[in-house]
Design a protein around this nucleic acid. Structure first.
Length: 302
DNA sequence: GCCACTGTTAGCAT
DNA sequence: CATGCTAACAGTGG
């Protein structure tokens, strides 16, 4: 389900509604949700929620005393505010009740892919659970992202989905970004001209920012913690539009499986081989430095 | 009933 | 480093 814009929207929703509340009880209904001993959750009793954050597609709920719940929602993870006495849906995996509150926060997950970790550190963002993630697309200058792109060999589609390469982009926003950049999902990243790489970096940022502003995309299940639908699905140009006319050129949108994921693109607007004068070869933009070469050698992390 | 499909990703083989 | 396959699980739709 949720990619960066959806998780960001949920984080904002929880920030509005949950920060400041003091925990009365945490009940884990599906023990496998939590990586680590369930007993640890008892420590949260009596503590207030002091903040809600996001890193990539991970949601971080922070409590007093250096305790944090780190959620990965995977496909179908959702939060709901419910009356404490309301019937518990069969997909509810976790309940958090608060002092002096009639409503409790429930986490549900139909497919049981979601993962929860309890962190006890003053610096959760440096925890090993987040260590492998690539940069935050909206907090990294586009030229830096472009430089990373051009150093890789894989297909654009797979690279954008690779969380170690870039954190937070999933199937919807990868396809929408590639369309916005006019680049074919099968293009090798290393074949991009400097202009193309920069175009893609900016397209990713533009699409993600617009999606956050629209509250994410509601295709099926997704809602924020307050039950609100996202609206960005209305702006999808290619995702889920197989055989429908491209909104720019009118030709049918194509669907193909790439790297095991269904991929939607317009074969005219996103040609595999660049045509026309723009974007051919490895030419550098006049007056600006190349994204390639004369770079500092990367040292391998130990 | 069967089959294909789904917004994710870890693990393993090649 | 890249790619392909499987599995984790449940529901929906043809």
């Amino acid at each position: 389900m949720p990619e960066l814009p959806e998780v960001e929207t949920i984080a904002r929703s929880l920030r509005r509604t949950a920060v400041g509340l003091r925990v009365e009880a945490v009940r884990l209904l599906w023990p496998k949700l939590l990586r680590g001993p369930a007993a640890g959750l008892r420590r949260l009793r009596g503590r207030r929620i002091v903040g809600v954050g996001r890193r990539g597609k991970m949601l971080l709920v922070s409590f007093e005393g250096d305790a944090h719940l780190l959620f990965h929602l995977k496909m179908t993870g959702r939060f709901h505010w419910m009356d404490r006495g309301a019937p518990v849906d069969r997909h509810t995996r976790l309940r958090i009740a608060f002092r002096d509150r009639a409503r409790e926060l429930r986490f549900s997950d139909v497919r049981k892919f979601a993962v929860l970790r309890l962190l006890d550190t003053p610096h959760p963002l440096e925890s090993p659970a987040l260590a492998g993630l690539g940069p935050e697309p909206l907090a990294t200058p586009a030229p830096d992202l472009a430089r990373r792109l051009v150093r890789r060999n894989g297909r654009l589609k797979s690279l954008l989905l690779n969380q170690a390469f870039l954190a937070g982009v999933g199937n919807i926003y990868a396809d929408e970004s590639l369309f916005a950049a006019g680049l074919h999902p099968l293009r090798a990243a290393s074949s991009l001209s400097d202009d193309e790489a920069l175009r893609l970096a900016r397209a990713v940022q533009k699409i993600l920012a617009a999606a956050v502003a629209a509250g994410g995309s509601t295709i099926r299940d997704y809602r924020d913690a307050e039950g609100m639908d996202g609206l960005f699905q209305r702006d999808h140009k290619v995702y889920g539009r197989r055989s429908e006319p491209c909104r720019v050129c009118g030709r049918p949108v194509e669907r193909r499986v790439i790297g095991g994921r269904s991929s939607f693109f317009c074969p005219i607007c996103q040609p595999l081989r660049p045509s026309g004068a723009a974007g051919r070869g490895h030419g550098r933009t006049s007056g600006s430095a190349s994204l390639r070469g004369n770079g500092v050698r990367r040292r391998r992390s130990n």
